[in-house]
């Protein structure tokens, strides 16, 4: 998966921000390992209209080894807090992860 690194301080972001927290506006896009662990997660049994067809499904906040966190969908077997996960693919801006 692609991450955006601040050219001034090196901080990594999942989506390109307008400003880095250090004040810089220069970013380099770079490939990341896509490895991380589960910071928190939940399985949904009720969803907004667009996602009702996917129920039940699991979402998680993933902490990437490169630093930033993101909200992502989990594919395959359910995960728990602390589980190692890897990036599977990105689809229409949504990142999918699975248990490592």
């Amino acid at each position: 998966m692609t991450l955006f690194h601040c050219s001034a301080c090196g901080k990594a972001y999942v989506a390109r921000p307008v400003y880095c927290r250090c004040g810089s506006q220069e970013f380099r896009a770079g490939e990341a390992s896509g490895k991380g662990c589960v910071y928190s997660c939940t399985t949904l049994y009720a969803a907004a209209e667009k996602f009702e067809k996917d129920l039940p499904f699991q979402i998680a906040i993933i902490e990437l080894d490169d630093g930033p966190r993101l909200t992502a969908r989990i594919s395959g077997r359910p995960v728990e807090i602390g589980d190692a996960v890897t990036h599977l693919h990105e689809q229409e801006g949504v990142h999918f992860f699975q248990a490592a």
Binding site: A47, T71, G93
Partner: peptide, 30 residues
Amino acid sequence: TDILASAGELGGEVKAGATFPSLFAMIARR
């Protein structure tokens, strides 16, 4: 649920299918 979810962050959370109950569920789990 859809309208309420729009108070979450559209780019990441809402796109991934998060609802308000699911955001607070992750808070509760943690």
